[in-house]
Design a binder for these strands. Sequence first.
DNA 1: TGCCGGTGATGCCTCGCGAGTATCAATTTG
DNA 2: CAAATTGATACTCGCGAGGCATCACCGGCA
Lengths: 317, 317
Amino acid sequence: MPREYQFDFELRHLVYFREVARTLHFRRAAEALAVAQPALSRQIAQLEEALGVELFARSRRKVELTAAGRALAERVEPLLRNLSAVPDELRALTGGQTGQVKVAFTGLAMATVLPGILREFHRRFPNIRLELNESPTSAQLVALAAGEIACGFFHPDATTPGLRTRELLREKNGVLLPADHPLAKRPSLRLKELVGVPWVLFPRAHNPGFYDRVLAAFSRAGVTPRIAEEVWPRANAVGLVRAGLGGTFMCPSEARPLPEGVAFRPLEGPAPESRLVVGWRAEDARHLPALASFLAVAAAPEGPRAGPAVHPPRQAV
Amino acid sequence: MPREYQFDFELRHLVYFREVARTLHFRRAAEALAVAQPALSRQIAQLEEALGVELFARSRRKVELTAAGRALAERVEPLLRNLSAVPDELRALTGGQTGQVKVAFTGLAMATVLPGILREFHRRFPNIRLELNESPTSAQLVALAAGEIACGFFHPDATTPGLRTRELLREKNGVLLPADHPLAKRPSLRLKELVGVPWVLFPRAHNPGFYDRVLAAFSRAGVTPRIAEEVWPRANAVGLVRAGLGGTFMCPSEARPLPEGVAFRPLEGPAPESRLVVGWRAEDARHLPALASFLAVAAAPEGPRAGPAVHPPRQAV
DNA sequence: TGCCGGTGATGCCTCGCGAGTATCAATTTG
DNA sequence: CAAATTGATACTCGCGAGGCATCACCGGCA
């Protein structure tokens, strides 16, 4: 039996095409797909070449579907819809619609991406129960290795051996100050201007890598910070800052919405960078169906998140 | 409206999966797909990870489908079948089921891949008429530029400006000799052993680049060939060799089946390499529906060819 | 009519990943 | 127990998807 026809296009082309066919607008479609407009233009051109057919009639000012384009849109729409249901069906077969998953998270996760993930997850998998516990990065790594949790949202620093991770957030830190602090009058700050400001941190053992990078950033700026408090869980740091005990680092997304009595100021120049990832043991994803379902939401390549999409930037700053 | 679900796998994964699901054998599936076995293993592993489901139960010695694997196979099979019909449908819409295409070809094309392409093409597009003319590479390039032909099978040498091409064949030449020639007793030959053998070539103007590479190969081997005849069309060269006028270069595929009265011997060490491509003007493929249909067969990435599949080797020898 | 804003295409560059080669590890077979 | 078979792993390389900057072109507006 001769080998079946192989495709000279990919699902990506079809997904891109569908979006352009819907919006009839390359730039808006590109934005919705979270790619740059030239990339989208080229993929559409490739698809047209692969099919040997013009799909869009582009005048410089307007985009419309050709007859072939309309036909393709009609075929592609149900096809992608069907296909998108397949992964959940398969997980359902292996029991991935029920069960429970133990999940650990840090304060940053709960302050940013986690609520959106949980909402989406409970919509798609109402019968899977999550057991959620706030826990520092270091403890999560131990618990993952020991199999005590199936999945953690933490801040990667050292290499995470044997774990699969997906980055969810990467942001340069800004500074959280008491609202009445003199420096809070400035629209933005530099690290070296923080000399003398007492500083609120977290216990070093919770994430030594990041802790040390913070101190290193200070010392590169010629400042020796005075550590006023080490506090945990993270959410309590805001209270200490508001109480006037000092300042602390914070990601922009973590500072939205801004609590009363504190001010958030971005840092100019070099500043510590916070990364948030979701991590799990590679083999678990194939053996614990409920975990696979959770990861289908939490570690989706571009899963819909709460609020405006938060794209992890490609390169570090 | 939130962005629709995006896939974390590609059509390639599904095609690969289908083949493994059919054969239940990674090596044979890899061969059928014309990829190496490790590549296939990894793509399947990726698909399993993307879906969060084990698709195959591999013992070291046997591969079987899991329940999820069976379910996926059932979903994927019709889906790919449907999808493979789409390109032809679209071309039909724009008139790509009728019309005519002017095609030029060289002797090598007709001796190797062209018959298989024509058979397949007439099966899929019985109402498109081809106008086929044997023509040397140089003339084809002129005719393509002038729009006199829509598509040519030729031997690329210089750059082919403004043309889209796809490689169909790349082979090291061997030597065709009269069956009773003394050198024909040897199982294989070296270029320098051909000293003194009269040589049958094609008119230089037909493909100066290749012609000169042949002479250069001779001179690098320390041989100055005596050009006995320059003949065209190519098929006539066999007659001259059989008549004892001399030897000529020939690709292994071109020498199958071997005509009476001649002997084909591979060359050891460096030897001229023949390449065959199909070429067309990029914009024509989108504006001439019948051409698009022809290219869907002739320039398919791995289209079924006559006889055992001829894969153009990845790197030159 | 000329300027400006919006739109899709093009050129150049980077980097991630698919695929190739070589090799390993495990199991069956004689 | 040796040899063959088979899927997985380590590494390296090259292609191409995608990013950024810019162009070419068109419409609207004063």
